[in-house]
Design a binder for these strands. Sequence first.
DNA 1: CTGTTAGCGCCTTCAA
DNA 2: TTGAAGGCGCTAACAG
Lengths: 335, 335
Amino acid sequence: MKRRSVTSYDVARLAGVSQSAVSRCFSPKGSISAKTREKVLAAARQLGYRPNTIARSLITRSSRTVAVVVSQLDNPFYALTLARASRTFQSEGYHLLLFLVSADGDTTDVMSEILQSQAEGILMLAASLTTPFAQECVDRSIPVVMINRTVDFTGVSQVSSDNYHGGYWAGSYLVSQGHRRMAFINGLVSSSTGAYRRRGFLDALLSQGFSCWAEEYGEYHFDKAREATRRLFTKQPYPDAVFAANDHMAIAAVETLRAEFGLRIPEDVSVIGFDDTPLAAWPSYQLTTVRQPVEDMVAAAAELLLGQMREGKLSPVQRILPVVPILRGSVRQRG
Amino acid sequence: MKRRSVTSYDVARLAGVSQSAVSRCFSPKGSISAKTREKVLAAARQLGYRPNTIARSLITRSSRTVAVVVSQLDNPFYALTLARASRTFQSEGYHLLLFLVSADGDTTDVMSEILQSQAEGILMLAASLTTPFAQECVDRSIPVVMINRTVDFTGVSQVSSDNYHGGYWAGSYLVSQGHRRMAFINGLVSSSTGAYRRRGFLDALLSQGFSCWAEEYGEYHFDKAREATRRLFTKQPYPDAVFAANDHMAIAAVETLRAEFGLRIPEDVSVIGFDDTPLAAWPSYQLTTVRQPVEDMVAAAAELLLGQMREGKLSPVQRILPVVPILRGSVRQRG
DNA sequence: CTGTTAGCGCCTTCAA
DNA sequence: TTGAAGGCGCTAACAG
């Protein structure tokens, strides 16, 4: 139990005004004469008064808080996304309540916490949501925006990049450059993004009369992706191209192929990633990849969330942003 | 304005009990008969009732929230640190309020927000604090723990690794391996960690009769560090060793030296970093570095913060954890 | 413009 | 064990 803190009453007493005068003084649209305002501010300063956000939230019924659920903070892509989102909401005057979950973990208890926390909006970054919770959010008219994860439920908004066509591009590009044994390193079974990237990739191969040479799961995790790579390359003939469901894993593959198999990229094996994280552009990797428009995605998500929070009504939208192929040096060129 | 939500009164009415019965039912130490508890829970379930954390905080005067101020989320080291901290506090039943600041930015408005938010503790990750705010936190008996940043004020706790000796080791190790033109890539002028690492490094060189060959600022930023590297290596004779104030910048240096100067690591130039981020161990870098014990640091910080929050009294402590040199392949061996 | 008066949703004595 | 009653610190009508 904390010792009693300075309240607006204390300030009022010292300033010789009513408590509500103090309140007005600290709310943007309170009408107050310059004279009392000054008295109040002086008293407040003297006592070190600061309005109590919690009390304010209780009465205004608005916490100006959004909950962010994120997994995979070890992946630079999501660290960056979180950073941008944080900046955006901060600048709009919202506080961020951060919840970390494991990539495939269930979010049940976390969601429960969030619902009790009176957050006015929920942003899910690469985190899954169960239908009952999605339903509950809708019931309470708390807008939810998911980035890069889907839920089988129409009540929540979803922002993602065009995973299917990203995968499709990767597949057709590899074929067009003369590759024949294309392997895929998938992320998590539970991830919708991975599923779409895979589907697009397979469809592209199929449309050219090929099928996927081999497939492994790297769980969006660096070391797991290295293991996946090893599994892929232990049996001959090994793949002549690898498409990974994200850059993080693609780079894991590059590192492993070079260091453990003595293979050169792209002379011996071509590699394509997904995301376009900063590392992809580093000289060591020059990773050809599919760029997700992070900034646009965050901006879209923020816009949706902010809009719905302000209007107090839900208008779930599914937004799919175009990806852009980034050609660098990790794919062998035909001829 | 949100529509009225389900309150404990609604539940009480439906269950045919008093509101306080409902309250007791949802607080851990409320004494209630099994029968009423059941009635209440049933009613609560039916109405979708969840206790309002804000109201609870107001009356208990405890928000069970800690504010985390972090900069440099693009640096994997801090992304990781945040992830660990988040897990720790979550598992202790605390909520995290996240505030991002720019690496050298002032934290004035952010601190102001935090103070109003009624957070019970503040964790600063690579973020600076001005003395007046430190003082205010002390006045309000809000414990503050800073990780890897110092404030010239004894009221707050500080956890850091032994930056001085880390730098010292780097310096003496380079000398002992026969290097002669040791350069330093510093972080930010405002960063205490950088200052200590530098001091240790210089002292080590000095004690062997050397001085720093050249010094540049990389601002803990990848691209800035690349520029710093370029500046370091444009005038002949260039350094035969580079010590960077963190791995992030060390790797930027490696990338730049290889790609733009055609130099080999460690044959032509040796490089030492600081942190031991995951990347440092990747085959491409094999970066010799000074490991900061992240887990221990977070554990120590969490322990300090939790302890002080529980006891409600401040007992600021300065904890310096030992670093450990990690010898990999980025330093040329003597002989 | 200012003060008075009700609460926001909950916890917590205090009696019963 | 239960209910009644009084706030936590603040905002928002409402009169004056």
